[in-house]
């Protein structure tokens, strides 16, 4: 049950209770991010250390190879970039300032956004 964007205090469950189980899956934590991992394919040896270490399962592997980052859930912790051995000293994952995430954060401060309840 998602709370609509125009919901007021009368419309939301009491005390912040979450009445639907498993709804955390719908909650997009990507907005927490300041830096985002950026993949540089030419430096990637597909060791999948990033996939193994990602605490949020935000690294998606395909056919045993690096596939993509799920930016809706990636919080930008930087663990993937840290463990990445890269190729010849050049990392395949680097953390760069996330302008989009920064914009989202500003927006959510300015106006409450829809939240999964």
């Amino acid at each position: 049950m998602s709370v609509p964007k125009n919901a007021g205090w009368r419309d939301v469950p009491k005390a912040g209770r979450i009445l639907e189980p498993g709804s955390a899956a719908e909650y997009e934590t990507g907005g927490w991010r300041t830096y985002r991992p950026q993949h540089i394919p030419e430096n990637c040896i597909h060791c999948l250390f990033c996939w193994l270490y990602c605490p949020d399962m935000s690294v998606i592997a395909r056919d045993g190879k690096f596939g993509e980052i799920n930016y809706k859930s990636c919080k930008g912790c930087g663990v993937c970039a840290q463990v990445c051995p890269g190729k010849r000293g050049q990392k395949a994952l680097v953390m760069v300032l996330d302008e989009a995430a920064a914009a989202t954060a500003e927006e959510s401060c300015a106006e409450p956004k829809a939240q999964t309840k």
Binding site: A15, G16, R17, I18, P112
Partner: peptide, 16 residues
């Protein structure tokens, strides 16, 4: 099943 007492930050705390 419900969750009672979750983290409630600036986006909804004031409404509660």
């Amino acid at each position: 099943p419900v969750t009672i007492g979750p983290l409630d930050l600036y986006d909804w705390n004031m409404e509660h």
